[in-house]
Amino acid sequence: MSKVQSRHFRAEKFDFWSFFFSGLTGLATLFILGILATILLNIIVNGWSAISWHFVSTIPKKDFFDANTTGVLPMIVGTSFRVIVMTIFVIPVGVITAIYLTEYAPNTSIITRIIRAAVNNLAGVPSIVFGLFGLGFFINFAGKNLDLLLHNANAVWGQPALIWASLTLAVMTLPVVIVATEESLKAIPPGLREASLALGATKLETILRIVLPQALPGIMTGGILAVSRAAGEVAPILFTGVAYYMASLPAHLSDQFMDLGYHVFVLSTQSPNIEQTRPILYATVLVLLLLTFALNFVAILIRARVRKKLRALG
């Protein structure tokens, strides 16, 4: 009896491999977090000292490498403009597609499977290919033909412009919105739809009055994720609308614009004197990060809530 007891209470034998591998995977996790922390801290510490009200509110002169006179107002405005215009296009299309997929589409039909495959593929297309698409389709095809129709072939729309960059980004972020909206639509208990239908509501009435109000947080998450993804993207706008320098803020959809992400690229690769540019480079990166991170953070918070709801149902 006592022998059994003592065996029972003996400390677990030290298992080298268990210790080794647990430690290794733990270290991998720690290493990734370390990278993340290093990048963020490096940028925050170096950027914070260089950032100022003057910096974020000034339209720079042609030589924006001069740390004393430069500013990033046009880039903030440009980046904000292009994501706002993008949102106006991508949210309705994305939400309606998600509604079709969850509320209308028969699960087994071929067309549903093709739509899903297309959404998945769209999510995996490299951002530079979106840039080429924007150039080939929006500018060289849609824009040029618009000019032929409206402006006697004078180049108004058939050149890089805010609208084309925004539309290109809208195509790129479409899967983000669809997936997030679908997730939140699926989290709504089917009982609510049944209750509404059993009261003699049509499908459309049920969607508009019961389903969509409930899905709103999910739709917002999708929008925010799309915006935060798009805000930092540079490759798709390279040929579709971004300008190296503009003396004034963009005022029209056919204008080009300056952009925070592109400006980071320009400052880090084109500077005549990288040591002098370093502070404003850090400050620009910090502004960009603050913008995208704040958005990401909100999205993650909302998504965690929606997921919890989903789990409670399952």
């Binding site: 208990p189 609510l192 049944e194 209750a195 003699g200 509501a201």
Partner: peptide, 19 residues
């Protein structure tokens, strides 16, 4: 069907009030 459901109401197993 809409008209039919207006005339044939239903109460479900799990109460499902709208939020």
């Amino acid at each position: 069907v809409i008209e039919l459901r207006k005339r044939v109401g239903m109460v479900f197993q799990k109460s499902n009030p709208f939020p």
